[in-house]
Amino acid sequence: MARKLLLILMLLLAVKMSAQEGNSRFCFGFNYGFGSEFSNRNYTFNSHFYKLQLYYLLKETKHFQYQILVQPEINFAEHQLLNFYFVKPETPNYQQKREEYTRLKDIREFALNCGFLVRKPIGKVCSFYVLGSIGPMITDTETERMSKGFAFADVLALGFTTSYNKLQFDIRPSIRHVSNAGLGSSNAGYNTKNIEFGIYYQL
Rank of each mutant, 00 (worst) to 15 (best):
F64Q: 13
F26T: 14
S127C: 11
V155A: 02
E109Q: 08
S163C: 14
L117W: 03
H48R: 09
L52D: 04
L52P: 00
S127Q: 04
A188W: 04
V155L: 09
A181S: 13
K124M: 04
I8Q: 14
D140W: 13
G29M: 07
S127I: 02
E100A: 11
A188T: 04
G33A: 02
F38C: 08
C114K: 04
F150H: 09
E144Y: 12
E144F: 12
L167P: 08
C27N: 12
K148C: 08
I107E: 08
S133K: 00
I107F: 03
N194K: 07
N23A: 15
Q202V: 00
K62A: 02
R41K: 14
A181N: 06
Y50L: 08
F169T: 05
C114P: 00
S18P: 00
T61G: 09
Q53A: 13
F116G: 08
Y43F: 15
L6Y: 10
Y94Q: 00
G123P: 04
S147D: 15
G35Q: 04
I122Q: 07
M146L: 15
G182L: 11
K193A: 07
Y55Q: 00
Y164E: 10
I138M: 11
F49T: 03
F45D: 00
G159M: 08
T44R: 11
G184E: 08
F197P: 04
V87P: 03
L11R: 13
L167C: 11
S47P: 00
L11I: 07
K124N: 14
S24A: 15
Y129I: 01
K59A: 12
R25S: 12
P121N: 02
F84E: 10
K193I: 15
G159W: 13
N194F: 03
S186A: 01
G182F: 05
K193V: 09
I171D: 01
N40S: 11
R145Y: 11
I195F: 11
G33E: 05
D106P: 10
C114F: 04
R108Q: 07
P173C: 12
L203R: 05
F152W: 02
T102Q: 15
F110Q: 12
F116K: 05
N93Y: 11
A111W: 13
E100K: 14
G149H: 13
A2N: 08
L203V: 09
R41D: 15
T61S: 15
N42C: 10
M146R: 02
R103V: 02
L7C: 00
I199M: 09
E78Y: 06
G22D: 11
